[in-house]
Amino acid sequence: MIETVMPAAQGVLLILGCLLFAVGTLGLFRLTDTLARIHALTKVDNLGLGLIVLALLPLAPSFLAGLKTLLIWAAALAASATAAHLVARAVHAGREAPGAEDSADD
């Protein structure tokens, strides 16, 4: 029973995860302002990566390898929160100095 359910569940999680990445990228095209695009990229991609990590966890050859997979997710979460904040701050700095606006809006 478990032998058939597990791979199916993992497959579903993997496909959902990849679809979420695609949706996050779709956000880059559909949304128009920089900060709204950041919302799409950080939040949707994190969930996508989370589902992929969940799908891969049962395949980890050892306990440590599983921890390492979780660590990758945690590092990606921290990196995207930090990057999102930095981009947002750059957009604000660009608004206050009108000359820099073009570069911040790209």
């Binding site: 979420l20 949706v23 996050g24 956000g27 949304l31 939040k43 994190n46 969930l47 989370g50 979460l77």
Partner: peptide, 14 residues
Amino acid sequence: RSAVAGLDVARRLL
């Protein structure tokens, strides 16, 4: 909450 966030933004985008 972050799972809700991902689904929320995905729903809006789609």
